[in-house]
């Protein structure tokens, strides 16, 4: 069983939901990525999503755009991101790691080369924001050959038929974008999201996570009642942005623990 599948199976045995933090590798410093990953796990994270910096993050709001810009100023590349995963794997071979980014850096490396290097590094899943399922065919084939899951997004505007098609293709987990907009955007209508997640779960063969706009424990808690996983992205990146570099792992861990406690209180 893949790390992602066994993580969800394990959590389900404990009657707990997955907590998935996201941050951009290289923000604020490349050296902090591995310590931050370990701290997030200590704080209660079950799966880690790592952002691959890109010059043109079309689907991201200002917070994650700035994170990407800081990482690029530090010269961080996709190869660096893969090296971070390798280093993390030296001390943690349990926690799944999912890379999230845009198509161009991956295509520049080459799909097959990327798949091979990602496998060697210990990556478990890949989410390419600007690869809808049709355009993801080649990457998905390359990744499945090396046992890595391709993660797909669903959105509030995804039609019923499309939702069923994507649910059939999904591996790892499905990621439901909980609002109309970019990452970190405004208000999330919790009850509407909850209803939609229930619909997705009824036709999905893989767990369903929810993300975009989850900023507090109460929202995470409500959504963890209906979803299999909750993704916390911009809120964590804001915490990193507000922190002096040496404090980043500690503050990330504290924030994770708050979400963890809020979510587990719901069970």
């Amino acid at each position: 069983m893949s790390r992602i599948a066994s993580t969800f199976a394990h959590l389900s045995g404990l009657n707990r939901k997955a907590l998935i933090p996201f941050f951009t590798v290289g923000d604020p410093l490349l050296e902090l990525a591995v310590p931050t990953m370990r701290a997030l796990v200590s704080g209660g994270a079950d799966i880690l999503e790592l952002g691959i910096p890109f010059s043109d993050p079309m689907a991201d709001g200002p917070t994650i755009q700035r994170a990407s810009e800081r990482a690029l100023q530090n010269g961080v590349t996709l190869t660096d991101v893969l090296a971070v995963v390798s280093e993390f794997r030296l001390t943690d071979d349990q926690t799944p790691v999912v890379l999230m980014g845009y198509a161009n850096p991956i295509e520049r490396l080459g799909l097959d080369a990327f798949a091979a290097q990602a496998r060697d590094a210990g990556v478990d899943g890949v989410l390419v924001v600007d690869y809808p399922p049709l355009e993801a065919r080649h990457l998905k084939a390359a990744l499945s050959l090396v046992g890595i899951d391709t993660i797909f997004l669903l959105s509030p505007t995804t039609t019923e038929q499309r939702m069923r098609e994507i649910a059939q293709l999904a591996t790892g987990y499905l990621y439901y974008v909980s609002l109309r907009g970019v990452t970190g955007a405004g208000h999330l209508e919790v009850e509407a999201v909850a209803a939609q997640v229930a619909r997705i779960r009824s036709c999905a063969r893989v767990p369903v996570g929810v993300g975009f706009g989850i900023r507090d424990g109460a929202t995470a808690r409500r959504l963890s009642e209906v979803a299999d996983a909750v993704v916390v992205g911009s809120r964590l990146v804001e915490e990193i942005e507000a922190s002096i570099p040496t404090e980043v792992p500690h503050r990330a861990e504290t924030l994770m623990r708050q979400f963890r406690l809020a979510m587990d209180g719901a069970q």
Binding site: M58, A59, A103, V129, D130, Y131, P132, L134, E135, F152, L153, L154, S155, T157, T158, T159, R162, I166, V177, R180, G181
Partner: peptide, 22 residues
Amino acid sequence: QEGYFGPYGGTFVSETLMAAIE
């Protein structure tokens, strides 16, 4: 049909935009 001119073109957008594109 998929918006390709040989290997170029296509629809490389986030799922959040697919409904509008369709």
